[in-house]
Every structure is written in structure tokens, then in C-alpha cells.
Amino acid sequence: MAAVETQMLSSSSVKLAFRDLGKTFFVQGEPKLALQNINAEIRTGEFVSIVGASGCGKSTLIRIAAGLEQASEGGVYVEDNLVIKPGQDRGMVFQQFSLFPWLTVKENVMFGLQDQCPDKARRGEKALVWVERVGLGEFVDYYPNQLSGGMQQRVAIARALAPGPKVLLMDEPFAALDAQTRGRMQRHLLEIWRNLNITVVFITHDLEEAVLLADKIFVLAPKPGRLVATLPIDIPRTKDDLERDKYGPEFERVFKKISALLADSVPLDH
């Protein structure tokens, strides 16, 4: 698949890079700058959260990374290959539940395996492994409508991971879930991330979620969307080496710091 174009720039452990990325939309013929001069790097195995006020272009940024939209300037590179269209090197989980309602859980996960695995029976077996990995083994033959929101997003994660992407892109994947389910899903995601050692780019407007999960946080500011800070989160992951303690003093300190950054980034008239 010629989803990527080889570039000879090399920097070994950088998995995904935004280079001089800009995006201009045209709204009724008027150019509107959505993203400006984004430069950032994400290393292999890193869990990066992108936070920002609504309208700062975080969704646009991840959609460009997924290849669903085109950059106006610069671009997104996966292992130094310029992204020009969607491809199986990047898996995507959307905020809106986007499982195919006409396919069962297993068939949904099988969808992305067709190129690698032409034999249907083998494909089914592979899919089953993924469905079991997200803990839904007994629901393989259910249709998405018969599952709760949390279960649907688990399947969506399994579906995105099954083709073996290098990067997992997640666009506010838990925003539509209730608080309890969200907590369980966050932990579940960390388990998967730890077990597979996969690179995750996680968009959220929920700062607490970002601090809880990420190794590194990118803070975006609106009008136009630009990167104002890249903050490594060095709070130890105390709970089973996965989550952080969100009631600890360090958590509060980091949370407040980024809150202030976010507040400053938003113009008063916003």
C-alpha cells in the first residue's frame, strides 16, 4: 500500500512527528487559519495527550495524522514517512461510536485484517484473539447496538489495533462515556498500551484524564491553533505501574500548572 512517501530524514526512535504543520480552512471562500506552525515529536512507545480548549484544532490535528484531512503546510511523518492518506500503519478510535452496526463484534475486528489475511477462517481466529484481549470474548457474535457504550469503544480499540498499527490515534474516545465507565476504560487502555508497547496519541479536553494517562502533554492554544507547551509528566505511576494517583499532591501541582497554561492560552473574548 503506497500510503506513505519515503523521506530520507532520519531520527531513530521518533515514531510520529508534526513538522511545520499548518492548516487553513476555507469558510465561504474566506481563509480561516486552524493550525499554525506545529512542531512536535512523539517517541516510540510514548503515550502523548493533546489538550486544548474547544476550537483549538486538536481534532483537526489528529485527523491530519490519520490522513482523513490534508495539511496545508508541512505535514505529519510516521517513522519519517509523510502521511498522505489513511493507512494501516495508524489505527484510529473516534469519539462517536463508529463500529459498523451491520457487522458483529468479530466481523468488525475482521474488517481491517482483509489485506493481511485473505483466508476468512484465519481472519476470524485472529479477530477473536483481539476481542478476547479487550475482555469481550463472550460477545463476539453480538451486534454493536446490543452493547453498551464502553463495550463498543473496547471493540473499537480492538478493531483499530488488529491490523498492527505503529501508532494508535484516539480522538476523545471516552468523552461520550459515563464517569465510571470512563475510569475503567482508562485503566484498560493503559493495560493494552503497556502490554503491546504501542505509541498512543490521545486527544482529550479533560485535563485530569490527560495527566492521569500521558507520559507527555501537548498544550494547544486556539485562534489560531498552535502548540504552546510540551510538558513531560514525571509523576510516578503508582497504581500497578499504570495509573497515577489523582489525589496525590504532585498530581494537583501538575494539574494546576497546566490549567493555568490553558487559561492563559485562551483569549478573553473566546
Binding site: M1, A66, G67, L68, K85, P86, G87, Q88, R90, G91, M92, F94, Q96, S98, L99, F100, F111, G112, Q114, D115, R159, A160, P163
Partner: peptide
């Protein structure tokens, strides 16, 4: 469009 976009990211 979300179904089309999901399919695209899955290599369709």
C-alpha cells in the same frame, strides 16, 4: 461519514 472514515483508517 464516520463509517466511511473508520473504514478508510482500516485500509479499505
Amino acid at each position: 461519514t464516520r463509517y466511511v472514515e473508520a473504514a478508510l483508517t482500516l485500509g479499505a
